[in-house]
Write a protein that binds this DNA or RNA. Structure first.
Length: 281
DNA sequence: TCATCACCTGGAGA
DNA sequence: ATCTCCAGGTGAT
């Protein structure tokens, strides 16, 4: 890989994509499904699964991607301020459950819920002198009762998670097969899950199912569009997006930023949150 | 199709 | 101390 496009772990992990990561001294330790990943800046990234170069999308052609999304001085500024920021290719089931939990919750709270889920349903594992719990498999999480999920502090999301885990466990939803489908078809399939709307579907598609044209429009994205792009996109305002508005806006966005629009979202999101001094993990 | 509203919970700010 | 408000939304009316 060209040194110019070296991954910056700090920027990447602290960008709202992942929740089960902790920094201990100079090392980052993260849970990704049944694997544990240990990474240190400017050092080798190791995984308990032995799979390399996958999680941080080291196969992405960043020169090409950045040149395609650099449409204006706003994205350009975000790219310049956060070099080495990458999208992450997460374990699909963990990503799916994580973003279902993200509904109307702060990052800190999401992390707490997911940590509780791992402690209750995951496997205690040791890797590279670090001990932690893996994320439960669909089979394991599908056995969870509502009460157990409430004990994990999921609140009203407990029923969503229970249904979602059962969808995967029973084979009614095959996350791996969504990777091979196009954006629209996989989006529609995800949206059939109780608890998944457009925004959460876009997060799952972008962060785990290789749909780089997914552009999650959350409160922050909306603020960004209103602040910097109100001249470019039609009818952006601060009001909550209806399903139809969301879809129309998404089309306009992909039309403008292109097939790697999701990368543009990640840079813009990171920049605006930092500008407002919001906390990460 | 659209506008409201309730929803668990933890943390920040008044 | 106690209260209010909000956080990377979604589903039901």
């Amino acid at each position: 890989m060209h040194a110019k496009f070296k991954i910056n772990l700090e920027h990447t992990i602290n960008s709202g994509q992942v929740f089960l990561w902790n920094k201990i001294e100079e090392e980052w330790i993260g849970v990704n499904g049944q694997e544990i990943i240990v990474a240190q800046q400017d050092s080798q990234i190791i995984s308990s699964s032995g799979k390399e170069g996958y999680f941080f999308r080291e196969d992405d052609n960043m020169e090409k991607i950045l040149s395609r999304i650099r449409k204006d001085k706003i994205v350009n500024s975000a790219i310049m301020h956060f070099p080495g920021l990458r999208l992450i290719r997460q374990d699909a089931f963990q990503c799916y459950i994580s973003f279902i939990c993200s509904s109307n919750a702060s990052i800190r709270n999401i992390k707490l819920m997911l940590t509780n889920i791992c402690k209750k349903f995951g496997e205690k594992t040791e890797f590279n002198k670090h001990e932690c719990f893996t994320f439960p498999t669909p089979e394991k999480l599908a056995t969870a009762s509502i009460k157990q999920l409430l004990d994990c502090r999921l609140g009203f999301r407990a029923k969503y998670v229970r249904d979602a885990a059962k969808m995967v466990d029973t084979g009614r939803l095959d996350l791996e097969s969504l990777k091979k489908m196009d954006y629209q078809s996989s989006l529609e399939k995800l949206r059939t899950v109780y608890g998944i709307g457009n925004k959460i579907a876009d997060c799952i598609l972008l962060f785990s199912l290789d749909k780089l044209d997914a552009f999650p429009i959350d409160r922050w994205s909306q603020r960004i569009l209103l602040k910097y792009y109100s001249k470019i996109f039609n009818d952006v305002n601060e009001k909550p997006l209806t399903e139809k508005k969301y879809e129309e806006l998404h089309k306009e966005i992909v039309n403008y930023f292109g097939p790697y629009a999701g990368y543009a979202q990640q840079f813009l999101f990171k920049m605006e949150r930092e500008l407002n001094e919001k906390n990460w993990l």
